[in-house]
């Protein structure tokens, strides 16, 4: 292998990594709500879009410093997630999976509609967190923003591990995910856990949107595709398994970048979808899931 083709591959790897981190974060969001409620939140992609667009407004129009804008955007989208749970999921008296899924679809349409009203149909630029000067790395170039993305993903993963393993609330959430009735008997307020899961998954979605917007330029209509790619990662990693989702998300991102480089950029978006379909056909429990457990799940 010549050194130039090696640096090509490395370049695609970096490109894939930055997108893959976003899919990984979206997949984590899916998993949190799925574990707490057993439903797939079709508005997950909209959280990402909302995060990106809000960040654009706060940094480019309001001209807040980036850390402050980052924080306010995350809080804002988290509140949207909480509102979604309080006003559309919580009041449903006789929830069926079908009805809840349609409700999340409705919410996604509404968020998309609102985003179009407020931000219009154009893509929005946002400045990078730090300089846009690329760094050289064995012949490939890497943007500082990519390093930000990877770093923030790692921080979130660390936070995630800490939260679910070392805090009481996190352990309660895990208990609810494993057996809701038993958790309720043990005195855990499962309704509150559902709200928390929406808050966390909206917050994570927002962060994904914030960190990727400098690179992809956000517009109101991106939610569906981002969402379904994230879902692809979630399924590939084994639905409900967040560590699996992260690996799967990064994997899909890299594969996408390679496909864009070597096949055709037209079909780049189809890669994640084809992987999703393949997994559903061949091994619906994902790479890291157990098939016996999958059959019992009510999704």
């Amino acid at each position: 292998m010549t050194s130039s083709s090696f640096s090509d591959i490395l370049q695609f790897f970096f490109m894939g990594l930055q997108r893959g981190c976003i899919y990984a974060l979206a997949a984590m969001g899916f998993n949190m709500i799925y574990n707490a409620t057993g439903i797939i939140n079709f508005a997950q992609g909209e959280f990402v879009v909302l995060g990106g667009l809000m960040m654009v407004t706060l940094t480019m129009a309001v001209k807040l410093p980036i850390p402050l804008a980052f924080l306010s955007t995350t809080v804002f989208v988290t509140l949207v997630g909480i509102a979604m749970e309080r006003f559309t999921i919580n009041p449903v008296k006789h929830p069926t999976v079908l009805r809840l899924i349609i409700i999340t679809i409705a919410v996604s349409i509404i968020i998309k509609g609102l985003a179009m009203c407020f931000w219009g149909k154009n893509s929005h630029f946002m400045r990078h967190f730090s300089s846009t000067e690329t760094l050289d790395f064995y012949g490939a170039t890497i943007l500082p923003q990519t390093l930000w993305i990877i770093g923030i993903l790692l921080l979130i993963v660390a936070g995630y591990i800490y939260f679910f393993n070392y805090t009481m609330t996190g352990k309660c959430m895990r208990a609810c995910a494993i057996n809701r009735d038993a958790a309720r008997l043990a005195g855990i307020n499962d309704r509150k856990m559902v709200m928390l899961s929406f808050a966390l998954s909206a917050g994570i979605g927002a962060i994904a949107g914030i960190i990727i917007t400098p690179i992809i330029q956000m517009d109101y209509a991106r939610g569906a595709l981002l969402g379904i790619k994230g879902f692809g990662a979630a399924v590939l990693g084994g639905l409900g398994n967040s560590m699996g989702a992260i690996i799967a998300g990064v994997f899909i991102g890299i594969l996408e970048a390679l496909a864009a480089g070597y096949i055709s950029s037209h079909y780049m978006d189809a890669i994640a979808l084809i992987i999703l379909m393949l997994v559903l056909f061949v091994r619906p429990s994902g790479i890291f899931g157990s098939s016996e457990a999958m059959r019992l799940k009510e999704f």
Partner: peptide, 29 residues
């Protein structure tokens, strides 16, 4: 429909959504 033969619930929702996106991409590309 084949995956739904083996699985409970609403996998079909996501499979069809993915399929619709693929068809749209193919129609454009």
């Amino acid at each position: 429909g084949l995956p739904t033969m083996r699985l409970k619930g609403h996998y079909l929702a996501m499979a069809t959504l993915g399929f619709a996106s693929i068809i749209h991409i193919v129609a454009v590309a």
